[in-house]
Write a protein that binds this DNA or RNA. Structure first.
Lengths: 229, 229
DNA sequence: TCGAAAAATAAGTATAGACATAATGCGCCA
DNA sequence: TGGCGCATTATGTCTATACTTATTTTTCGA
């Protein structure tokens, strides 16, 4: 597979041993120095390989404690978060965008809780529809700190999704997947029946420790989000 | 934050420059040697920091091409996949398990498609319910290569989920999130109304290039899957 | 002028050596 | 016996150097 002596080769061999049962679950594996001697490579190379496996959840490493094979590994899966336009275009479809609403107002309590904000804070509320080949793709519901995106900024032609990535980039946050039934407006926008099961992604974005924006993306029926193990 | 000269410090400084606009989107940043000289550290340290950012989707690196800040970064989010018992216990609840059905039979076409299997292949079909503090947590629907888990293996007390992790570990696969309405049996098992919007996770597991098992986990209403950015 | 070969470049990786850090666990002392 | 502190140990990381590899740019010949 990989030329011997590379960290990928060491990783592959380690994986092979785990699968073959040479390194059984719950057991401790030889330390880096031993493996480096056995494989005839530098300790740093072994370190790179084992660190990679540990990041994937396939090994547990602790200083002094050594490296062990977890009994029930907690695997890590990753998925990619692109802006919606890229997501649509990546499927070979044409992206369309329609701003449905742009107003100032108090958010529902669930949103306030997610944002952890004072009650009366100025908040802009946007509703927009993303289209793929002219069919509804995703409904964007966003609450936004009014100081981050002042009223001058218009989201008529560029989605808040894209504006934020371009203007407030590289910020942290958290994400959650959930299912929700289509309410009246969502059903109308996404062209489905009220009560239909829809996949939604909720995201809160932080900047300097404070929540900037909360967004709920509700996808059209049948949408799937793929991740790689 | 981090003591200077560490790769974390370099990463933090790189991130700061991106946020501050010193390294604007679309632009190319200085090469590793230059940054190493500027920060007074080894090139390997800069490499580690920039590689880490590239893995998170915050930088794009190409040999000879240099390192650039993507205009619309495709962020990577990760979530943890534990066995369901651990998932429940991690919430501080007691895990329960009930096998509802264990039979041999032909899978529905959607499952066959996901598995990419010949029509008549022997397939075991399991249905099981996971409980959290005696309340329905998740419905497990699994199709399994009969040669992987022969009839002797009983899933009465141990879930297939756990059995597989312990016996066929470290295999690859793919995962998808979707929403589906509760059908009759699911509504009964999960104690909700038919048609309720439920979050489901589908996973196909491969071993040596061949599909071993397909599982659909349908969660009780209100369930969320969290990921970290 | 076009295209192929050669040079240049920046990231990718390997290595040996050193020191840092976090657990572990042992031994000492009360 | 119990608890505290220090020695031990395996991983974590940094450095300097060298070589490799992918890709771009330049050069040169047809």
């Amino acid at each position: 597979m990989d030329r011997p002596g590379t960290w990928q080769a060491v990783r592959a061999e380690a994986l092979r041993r785990m699968r073959a049962g040479d390194w059984p679950p719950g057991g401790r594996i030889p330390d880096e120095a031993e493996l480096a001697a056995e494989f005839g490579c530098a300790r740093a190379t072994v370190n790179r390989a084992l660190r990679d496996l540990a990041e994937a959840g396939l090994l547990e490493r602790r200083r002094k404690g050594g490296t062990r094979v977890p009994v029930t590994p907690i695997r890590k899966a990753t998925f990619e978060i692109a802006i919606i336009r890229q997501d649509v275009e990546g499927r070979g479809q044409r992206h369309g965008y329609r701003l449905l609403e742009d107003a100032l107002g108090p958010p529902p309590p669930e949103v306030l809780a997610a944002l952890d904000w004072p009650e009366g804070a100025g908040m802009r509320h946007l509703t927009a529809l993303h289209l793929a080949d002219d069919r509804p793709f995703c409904l964007e519901h966003r609450w936004l700190d009014a100081t981050v995106a002042p009223a001058e900024v218009s989201f008529d032609t560029i989605s808040a999704n894209e504006w934020l990535v371009r203007n407030i980039p590289y910020s942290g946050g958290n994400i959650a997947f959930l299912a929700r039934p289509a309410d009246g407006p969502a059903a109308r926008a996404l062209d489905c029946a009220p009560g239909d099961a829809l996949l939604a992604v909720e995201r809160t974005t932080f900047r300097d420790g404070a929540a900037i924006t909360f967004v709920r993306l509700t996808y059209a029926p049948g949408h799937r989000v793929d991740a790689t193990l």
